[in-house]
């Protein structure tokens, strides 16, 4: 074997045995504080993320009627199929639950965060912090959770608790039998099979364009 060939074989063997190549650590650059602050709009139940500011029920009612009521109604009762934001108390166990901020949402921070990030629909992130505080205060009022003199601020925000905060439980699935509970029946599993419900009775399936 020539020296050249021997060297090639050795090199090949070394390469095959060597650990993964260490690659450059050059992906991404440090994000500036300004860049992060501009995009970091999220708010948590403990108040993390809330900016300084405040807003009254009174101001909130004005803003809501101008920018929100077209879809959500003057008292946040909802228009057409747009979300109902108020009322619905004592409906969660009924066959037509009305899940509103007052009846269902666990945390007020969710309201502030969502209004700030996504509302008004079609003009997101256009309201000032004070306006978002005011709209949030009005939504509390619309749910009979504060009086009409109430002013919501960064300071008193976490003092406000929503009625259904303790209405949530952790996921307890699987909640139906598995193979461990016995092999599923394969034959003669039922004696009498009858049709109990039919989609055609409701007739809510969209028609084809040509129909």
């Amino acid at each position: 074997m020539s020296k050249f060939l021997l060297r090639s074989v050795l090199t090949a063997g070394l390469l095959a045995a060597s650990p993964a190549v260490v690659l450059a650590d050059d992906l991404g650059r440090p994000a500036t504080a300004e860049e992060i602050a501009a995009w970091d709009i999220d708010v948590r139940p403990d108040g993390m993320g809330l900016p300084p500011g405040q807003g009254s029920v009174e101001d909130g009612e004005t803003i809501f009627s101008e920018r929100c009521a077209a879809c959500h109604g003057d008292f946040a009762e909802g228009v057409d199929r747009w979300p109902v934001l108020s009322g619905g108390f004592e409906t969660l166990r009924s066959d037509r639950p009305v899940k509103t901020i007052g009846s269902y949402w666990p945390y007020l921070s969710t309201v502030w965060d969502y209004v700030n990030r996504a509302m008004p629909f079609g003009d997101a992130q256009s309201m000032t912090p004070d306006e978002v505080y005011a709209v949030t205060a009005f939504l509390l009022y619309a749910n009979d959770l504060v009086d009409d003199e109430f002013v919501l601020s960064q300071e008193n925000f976490t003092d406000v608790r929503l009625p259904n905060e303790n209405g949530f439980i952790e996921d307890s699935r699987p909640d139906t039998p598995s193979l461990a509970d016995g092999a599923p029946c394969m034959s003669n599993c039922k004696t009498d099979v009858t049709v109990t419900m039919r989609a055609r009775v409701l007739d809510v399936t969209p028609d084809h364009e040509e129909d």
């Binding site: 969660l92 965060d113 969502y114 209405g167 949530f168 952790e170 996921d171």
Partner: peptide, 24 residues
């Protein structure tokens, strides 16, 4: 964070009025 899509939505209301959350 308990944001809108994991509280108001995407929680599973049970017959007893309690709702499962984080049912991923």
């Amino acid at each position: 964070w308990h944001h809108r899509e994991e509280t108001s939505k995407y929680t599973d209301l049970l017959a007893n009025g309690k709702a499962r959350r984080f049912t991923w």
